[in-house]
């Protein structure tokens, strides 16, 4: 027998032995921690309640509002056409179907921006892009859109323009501010296009 065969066998055996010690990469694609920290520090993910109100009034089809609060709070009140993805279902495949759709911008919101921001960090770790956080959350929504504050007389022109917009938006979202004590809901029945199982081309020998 040729001596080279012994070398061949030995090298291959050592290489195979090495595979036992190398750790396998995680199956679900996650971005590296360095990248995550860098993205976390960018303030570009925050959008204002005014921007959301404008998009809602324009019925922007590319906007998807996601309520990350628990289902009980979602059932009491939420923004128009928002879907509910509580923190727990963020990491399940069913909850993730809303994210990462090309051409859709997902805006997360909660009572404040904190929970939505945390959901954003988790989603970013799972490599989802095009997600945003509504700054101020629902508390901010009430403060700015539903109960806008009149700017002081000395405020710049833009502040008054914004105030006018907010008053109009309030009219749109609450219906002329008529207070009704009756039980009401602003939710619509939401029907989703079911995702189809991806067909994979077959190969053969």
């Amino acid at each position: 027998m040729n001596r080279n065969y012994y070398f061949l066998t030995a090298i291959m055996f050592v290489l195979a032995l090495g595979t036992l010690f190398i750790s396998e990469r995680v199956v679900s694609p996650q971005i590296s921690p360095d990248e995550l920290l860098w993205d976390v520090l960018q303030p570009t993910r925050f959008v204002t309640t005014d921007q959301i109100a404008k998009r809602l009034i324009e019925k922007d089809p590319s906007l998807l509002l996601v309520d990350v609060r628990p289902a009980a709070e979602y059932n009491k009140f939420t923004l128009p056409n928002a879907v509910n993805v509580p923190l727990d279902s963020l990491i399940t495949p069913a909850g993730q179907e809303y994210f990462g759709n090309p051409g859709t911008k997902v805006v997360l919101f909660s009572n404040d921006a904190i929970l939505a921001n945390q959901a954003w960090v988790l989603l970013r770790r799972m490599a989802f892009k095009d997600n945003y956080v509504m700054k101020g959350g629902l508390n901010g929504w009430i403060k700015t859109i539903i109960q806008p504050e009149r700017p002081p007389q000395t405020a710049p022109e833009t502040a008054f323009e914004r105030y006018d917009f907010r008053k109009a938006a309030r009219l749109y979202f609450t219906g002329a501010g008529v207070v009704n004590s009756g039980k009401s809901s602003s939710k619509t029945k939401v029907v989703f296009k079911r995702r189809k199982k991806a067909a994979v081309a077959a190969g053969g020998c």
Binding site: M12, F13, A16, L20, I22, E24
Partner: peptide, 15 residues
Amino acid sequence: IKAGWWAFGFTVIAL
């Protein structure tokens, strides 16, 4: 079972 074990097992069988 970890993929490394399969690779190792097959290599041993092959050798």
